[in-house]
Design a protein around this nucleic acid. Structure first.
Lengths: 205, 205
DNA sequence: TCTTACCTAACTAGCGCTAGGTAAGAAATT
DNA sequence: AATTTCTTACCTAGCGCTAGTTAGGTAAGA
């Protein structure tokens, strides 16, 4: 029986198995996509069998939803403090987001999860389609609100906040894609800094 | 018996079945992704059986490669004329790309193909990973060359062309993602115009 | 006759998921 | 305190389906 911890007490009391599964599933969905990541592999990574996983999440789709909500929640509680603060200028907002971008580079699995899934979920019948549509809308609105709340005297009138929000999101996503594909050839921070300068320059023109 | 242009053409009288398959496969890979699109559906769409398709492409992966190369080639011959031209300013370059962006909106299947596949292929063992890495490098270099060839007197020295190239690509990709997810809420052209103005303003500052 | 362009049939592997069990701990009952 | 019952946390086995792929055939044009 080798190094097994004695057969007398086989059942260990695992409290946070659910989170454990969520973590592993995140990594694997990120690596292989929703369709590509199999229940078998997720189960294996967690040290369970497939029905073991399905004991916590009744189906694979439920698991995906769990993963999405789990990280969305975590993300919100991680950044909401930062983002709620009053800001003076667009430049300041961008500075903050640059920090977030850099921070996120430390968890490539998570970035990959969102990039891969957002690609898949472009299909309207994909299980996470609605989630992403809603998420993007929400984030854009959040930006717009921030812009409007800003007490910057020289804010250009002709810049519709909606456009700017869309643009910033696009830059973030686009940079992450290129970085994931070719990490050593793409300098996300440098490119984003350039973008920030352009925005700042234009806004205060 | 090989290369030397054997005059007896083995080509079938049948129309270009290969291209026909490629076209259908493009649409379906775009809609369902590589893993999601089944050979059965591709075969059905072409009016063949599965082995019928495999007669032309020995495996599904070969088919994918075929699709990628096919459209890359088409894209090059469609835009190389435009892009080779001498340009005066960055703004002019961006104007051209805005046109391309608008033009591409007419073939959402193709955009979707690339967005979905680029997401999937972030994995280093995905069959189209190398293709996309190489493609992005090539496109960035193309931009860089154009910037350097530009005879604009007021070109800002501190803007490294590499950064700008990365940024432009990011914007294009990011906008397309948002547009695919939520077509009626995202105005690609408006956002891109804003971006162009920012770039132009910054460059000639 | 040889090659090309398909076909039908079938194989195999892998997928998500279900059925039904077992064993451990908690709660309820004696 | 001991016993029964209930609940939770898994397990093994396997089902039904679909995927990509192969084997081997046929029919027609060069």
């Amino acid at each position: 029986m080798a190094n097994s911890t004695s057969q007398t007490k086989p059942k260990r009391v695992r409290r946070d198995r659910k989170d454990e599964i969520l973590e592993k599933a995140t990594a694997l969905f990120g690596e292989y996509g929703f369709q590509g990541a199999t229940l078998a592999r997720i189960a294996e990574a967690t040290g369970l069998t497939e029905p073991g996983v399905l004991h916590y999440f009744p189906s694979k789709v439920h698991l995906l939803q769990g993963v999405l909500e789990y990280h969305d929640r975590k993300e919100v509680e991680r950044y909401s403090g930062i983002l709620q603060k009053e800001k003076e200028s667009v430049f300041e907002i961008l500075k903050l987001h640059e920090g977030v971008l850099i921070e996120e580079q430390k968890t490539p699995g998570l970035i990959q999860l969102f990039v891969v899934l957002v690609g898949e979920s472009v299909r309207s019948d994909h299980p996470s389609h609605d989630f992403f549509v809603e998420r993007y809308r929400r984030v854009r609105e959040m930006y717009v609100e921030q812009f409007l709340r800003m007490n910057q005297p020289r804010f250009r009138r002709d810049v519709e906040p909606e456009k700017l929000a869309t643009l910033i999101l696009a830059v973030v996503d686009g940079l992450q894609i290129q970085w994931l594909l070719d990490p050593q050839k793409v300098d996300v921070q440098a490119a984003f800094e350039l973008f920030s300068k352009m925005v700042a320059g234009y806004m205060s023109e």
